[in-house]
Amino acid sequence: MNLTAQQKRICEQVINVFETGSVQGDYSSISIFPDGPGRIRQVTYGRSQTTEYGNLDELIQMYVDANGTHSNELRPYLEKIGVTALVDDSQFKRLLRDAGKNDPKMRQIQDEFFDKRYFQPAMAWADQNGFTLPLSALVVYDSFIHSGSVPEFLRKRFAERPPARGGNEKTWVQQYVDTRNNWLANHSNAVLHPTVYRTQCFKQQISRGNWDLSQLPIKANGVNVLGG
């Protein structure tokens, strides 16, 4: 998948809006969810959210190695992350918040980290399946961020095959977006319904033929994305 720097930036900005409500994303965001091992509460942190018992240790190791403003204070936590619960450690959470809010180094490290963790695997999947268009990249990236993959149960609900297996790229993307939109809009848990702002944004781009993401702004959940 060969994206220009501008096309990649647009993909990131659209996802930032979907996830956090702002084009820049929220690098200091901390949420607590009971989704750790054995459903224990855990810290979820950063622009695209990584978890205490997932890959937070890797992110903090990268930040400590980069000598950020709060690297020395966060260093002692490296051996604890993912081992000892830090969900109620207010000092740890304050350091994460401060670093995300005030230290450009933390923002740079998060960009690198989330690129490696989410964007690159999504693009590898897109390459393997023969996708080449920037809008396809955005749709696949969004699916990896939102659902962790392009879910198999959704792929079984439409006929078109991916380009690598002889299908038409635009038709596949259109059918996948429609299928995903129907799944979210009609989910038995009504609280999932509002998340169709994602698929509706893609449907708008498909209908205006914005396959190369050159028509700006892109309206994402009410926010204009300009790629600047």
Partner: peptide, 8 residues
């Protein structure tokens, strides 16, 4: 406007 983080 409901972001994913807000909804979660």
């Amino acid at each position: 406007q409901k972001s994913q983080q807000y909804l979660n």
